Simulated assay, not measured.
Amino acid sequence: MTELRTATPGSGPASDPAGGPRTGAPASGDSRGGGARARSLWETLAATQARFPVAQVALLFVTFAVGAIAIEGFGSYNSVRNMLVLASLVGLTAVGQTLVVLVGGLDLSVSGFIVAGALTVTQLAEMYGWNFGTALLVAIVGAGLLGAFTGWLCNRLNIQPLIVTLAMSAIAVGVVQVQTGGAQSGSAPAWLSQLSAPVATTFGIPMPPVVFLWLAVGVLMWLFLSRTRTGRQIYATGTNPRAADLALIRTRRIWTGVFAFSAISAVLAGVILAGFAGSVDGSLGGPYLFQSLAAVIVGGTVFGGPGDYWRTMIGAILLVFLGTVILGLGFTIPDRQVMYGAIILLAMAAYGREKKLSSRI
């Protein structure tokens, strides 16, 4: 027969004569408590980062400080003004890309529509004797139709936007080339060049008009995304498309409108870039495709949300500051591209640690 022993205080291996835990024995919840505190700290930081791009702003100040210390003249007014002009050009090309990323897509047609818009208001306008307003209207209508078809097709047939937008980029440039007989060159009018010339002033303020235009766009985008019903529907569509459908949000219309807006904004950015460059060729939009996407992601807007256009603006400034520092320290443009790619990978790795919004709704 098995002998039953009565446990007495102090007889257990983990108790002292007073009946409590033996001195020196690890409390069972200590390790779990440390892990819980670490998770709590990470969740607090992630929640703060979700509300405001703290990491991006901190990196922006660090980058500026390094540039001001290491590069002569980096912190001067003229230098900052020139960098803000470049950042505004990147930011304006990323307006539509921000909305596309918010709904969970990707727009690779930005470069094509930039070239198409720039050629339309320069070479096509000269060939057909159009005034600037007419040429701009033609470019906007054409881009809107092509962009709307892209969004409708991707949503209707569940096709990756990566494929469709890449094809649409070639179509946009090809349509213009057919009209120009294959030529891809044009000259911008002088008044358009003044819009983004670094030495230009705005109502006596020594800052080019394009910077104030960019700031105005930022305010309008903030009002649109945070204060309108359509803006909230864009967030809902990107967060959880199925839940948005069940909430009677017409997600197909959202996709159609967002891609149409992205195409139109790229055309308008192309017009401004034509003035900045002074002339237009087929390579005008190439650098801005990558930079527009990099500004969105580095700024903190991820596929399907969260995010907003203010983050994209911070991302654009950060990219320009960082790129200037890299070149100023003696690195090359390919080195800068490698650095941009590494930053994007790090940003996506950090975002990947957070739960998807769709799992929280």
Score class of each variant (00 low, 15 high):
Tyr288Gly: 04
Phe64Gln: 02
Ala350Pro: 08
Ser79Cys: 05
Ile205Phe: 10
Ser11Gln: 13
Val211Trp: 04
Phe132Leu: 03
Leu289Ile: 02
Pro206Ser: 06
Tyr128Ile: 08
Ile234Ser: 07
Leu319Met: 09
Gln123Trp: 08
Pro9Phe: 11
Ser283Tyr: 12
Leu137Val: 14
Phe224Asn: 05
Leu106Asp: 02
Ala316Pro: 07
Ala274Met: 03
Ala342Ile: 09
Ala350Tyr: 12
Gly147Arg: 00
Ile254Glu: 00
Arg336Tyr: 13
Ile249His: 06
Val325Asp: 06
Ile205Asn: 04
Leu84Pro: 05
Thr202Ala: 11
Gly257Thr: 01
Ala236Thr: 00
Val66Asp: 05
Trp222Ser: 07
Gly133Ile: 10
Phe149Gly: 06
Arg229His: 10
Tyr309Phe: 15
Gln177Phe: 07
Gly330Met: 04
Ala274Tyr: 02
Leu162Thr: 13
Gly105Val: 07
Asn131Glu: 10
Leu124Gln: 14
Glu126Lys: 14
Thr202Ile: 08
Ala94Glu: 07
Phe61Tyr: 11
Phe303His: 05
Thr312Gln: 05
Trp222Glu: 07
Asp281Ala: 06
Gly12Gln: 15
Leu289His: 00
Ser262Leu: 03
Ala295Ser: 09
Leu136Met: 13
Ile71Leu: 15
Val175Leu: 15
Leu268Ser: 00
Ala116Pro: 12
Gln49His: 05
Gly34Pro: 03
Thr44Pro: 03
Thr8Asn: 10
Leu225Met: 00
Ala68Asp: 09
Phe261Arg: 01
Ile272Arg: 01
Thr44Leu: 11
Val80Asp: 09
Leu322Gly: 04
Ala139Leu: 03
Ala38Ile: 10
Trp191Val: 06
Glu43Ala: 15
Pro206Arg: 06
Ala247Val: 09
Phe303Trp: 01
Thr165Ala: 04
Ile234Arg: 02
Gln291Lys: 14
Ile254Cys: 00
Pro241Met: 00
Gly307Phe: 02
Thr202Ser: 14
Gly286Phe: 14
Ser79Glu: 08
Tyr340Ser: 06
Thr6Phe: 12
Val141Lys: 02
Ser283Arg: 14
Arg81Lys: 13
Asp30Phe: 05
Thr332Leu: 07
Val267Tyr: 04
Thr301Pro: 01
